[in-house]
Every structure is written in structure tokens, then in C-alpha cells.
Design a protein around this nucleic acid. Structure first.
Lengths: 151, 151
DNA sequence: CCAGCTAAGTCCTGTAATGAAACTCAGCGT
DNA sequence: ACGCTGAGTTTCATTACAGGACTTAGCTGG
């Protein structure tokens, strides 16, 4: 397993870093909610899909809710919680990198835009003082209150 | 395997989505470059570490370079390429989510700050028109030039 | 010059995760 | 009563992972 070493990256990956989990969440952000939708669109094995959905529900990222279409029996569906919706920047960052570095020759398959103004949307590193378009070289890490020394 | 379905998220995950890969990259961003450093700090099995490093080099995310400390024989080290450094927003997004939703009670173990001004740094969704602090609800996806219909 | 040390791996073996297909289950429509 | 459908569960072969022992190449101290 991961040595969590009290690192938030490792802890996040313990929750959503299993194979398929981020693709399931991508489909959830695209509006899919039902087992068969996830299964058909992602192509994941059914037993793994069931296992991943359970894990995501247990972690409070998805909610299992009952719905009933007229003339159908009641079924379950999976909806993003607020905690789950907060994962969106991770998916956008993955999308941005993929579009830039491992893109399809045809171009991106999906474009994100701001619902209000229509402009393209990206995940950007910014500081609270308002400086934007930061890169890894502009950023420095310092130990925080939860830091623990390595043996 | 992943059904890539021409999705940049899936393609990115094929490159860095294997277990341990993002933790190796986290250590690379923290300035670590050598096999033993990665192994000790992450706790990954040596055979997997060797395998992951090879994969990341093949994908152009790390460069294997020879170095020689005085009085030591020449050894290899692994440095981030520009393509690898562009993965930073993904790690920052993972860090932000972890700090917010699965934090250690003591607080975050590491704080990121802007090297120039010292202010905290986060991954933020922004549109090209300058609207910031967007959430998943503010963003809409539309098919792009590389889009393919699902059967 | 030879044994020991070290970084950087490789090899081997048991355990765990994955993938594909078949099976179950409950209610609906006919 | 019978088959259909969505949502899983079971089974089993395949693959990946984890951990420890082993290897290799060049110092370095004796």
C-alpha cells in the first residue's frame, strides 16, 4: 500500500487513485448516473464497477439514490456529492495535460467552456495574491503544521 | 485496459495513472532524483519502482541522466522534463482536494507558496475571459474536433 | 590486490487485483 | 406464466503487486 506519510496527495489517491475510479467520476461529471451507463461507456468489468461505486459511496463522493421512471420499478442511481464535485479540478488538470501532450491528431474530444461567457476553461495555478499562470518552478513547498519528519 | 474512447483524461491516466506513478512524480517535484531516494521515501517495492521509472522515461516525463559525485562512480538519476513538469497542476489539484476533504487533524503536511510573493498557491478553474473560482457547475463540455460518437 | 560497501537494479515466489463470462434477482409488460 | 431488463454477484483464469534475496560495477580501506 501507499505510505501515506501524512501527504494529502497520497491520501487523495487512496480514495480516487484505484484503477477506473477517475474514469467513473469523469462519466459522473458528464451527467451519467446509472450502472449500465457507466459500464457501457467505460467498458469496465461489472464486478469492478460495482466494487468501485461502493467504495466511492463509502467515501462520500457519490450518493446512492433511488429513482423510479414511470412504468418501471424503482432503481438506484449514483450522484456526485459536493465532496465529489470538488474533484473536478483534478479531472480538468488531467484533461489539460492530455490535450497538450498526448492529444489525438484530430484535436481534443471535448472542450470545456464557462457556462456564463462561453470562454474555454482550464485548471490554472494561482497564488492568493492574484498572480496566475504559475508553473512548478514558480512554486515552493514548505512544511506545514501536519508535517512529520522521515526516519 | 482503459477504453480510451479518445478521451484525454483516459490517455493521461494511461501514462501516469498506474499505481505509484503520481507518488514518484510528487517526489520528483520535491527535488528527489535518485532510485534510493524514491524507494526510501515512498516505500514502493524496488522492482515496481524500476518498472515505473522506465515507463515514465519512455513517455518522456523523466529523463535518465548520468551524474558523478566526486570519489564515486557514475550513476543514473531521473529528472523531470518539461512535459513532466506540466503535470504539476494535477498534483496540486490532488493536494488541494486532500487538504480540504481528507486532511490530517494536525493540518496540511506541506504548504505551497508563490516563490516571488509568498502567497499560498492553489489549482483554480478559470476561463480565458478571466472569470475565476469556477466550479463544476459553472463549466459545460461540448464535443470538440476529435469527438467520436459512442455506439 | 582482495574483501567489503553502496547504489541501482533484477529475479523469484506467494498473494492480491483484475477481466470476462455466466449466473442471480426482482419486478414489469404481455 | 414467461421472458425482458437493470443491477448487480459468482467463478475462475490471468495479470499485477509486494517483499525478500540476489546481482553488478566500481570505489576504498586494509
Amino acid at each position: 500500500m501507499f505510505s501515506a506519510e501524512n501527504c494529502s496527495i497520497a491520501r487523495t489517491l487512496q480514495v480516487v487513485g484505484e484503477r477506473w475510479s477517475l474514469l467513473i467520476l469523469r462519466e459522473a461529471f458528464y451527467g451519467n448516473r446509472r450502472f449500465e451507463q457507466f459500464q457501457r461507456r467505460i467498458g469496465v468489468a461489472r464486478n469492478l464497477l460495482a466494487s468501485r461505486l461502493t467504495t466511492l459511496v463509502e467515501h462520500g463522493i457519490l450518493d446512492r439514490e433511488t429513482y423510479q421512471e414511470p412504468g418501471q420499478r424503482a432503481r438506484q442511481e449514483y450522484r456526485l456529492t459536493d465532496k465529489g464535485r470538488d474533484l473536478y479540478p483534478i479531472l480538468v488538470a488531467l484533461l489539460d495535460w492530455g490535450d497538450r501532450h498526448v492529444a489525438d491528431p484530430e484535436g481534443p474530444a471535448i472542450l470545456l467552456s464557462h457556462r456564463e461567457c462561453g470562454a474555454p476553461v482550464h485548471a490554472e495555478l494561482r497564488c492568493d495574491a492574484g498572480h496566475g499562470h504559475l508553473t512548478a518552478r514558480d512554486v515552493t513547498g514548505t512544511p506545514g503544521p501536519g508535517a512529520r519528519l522521515l526516519a
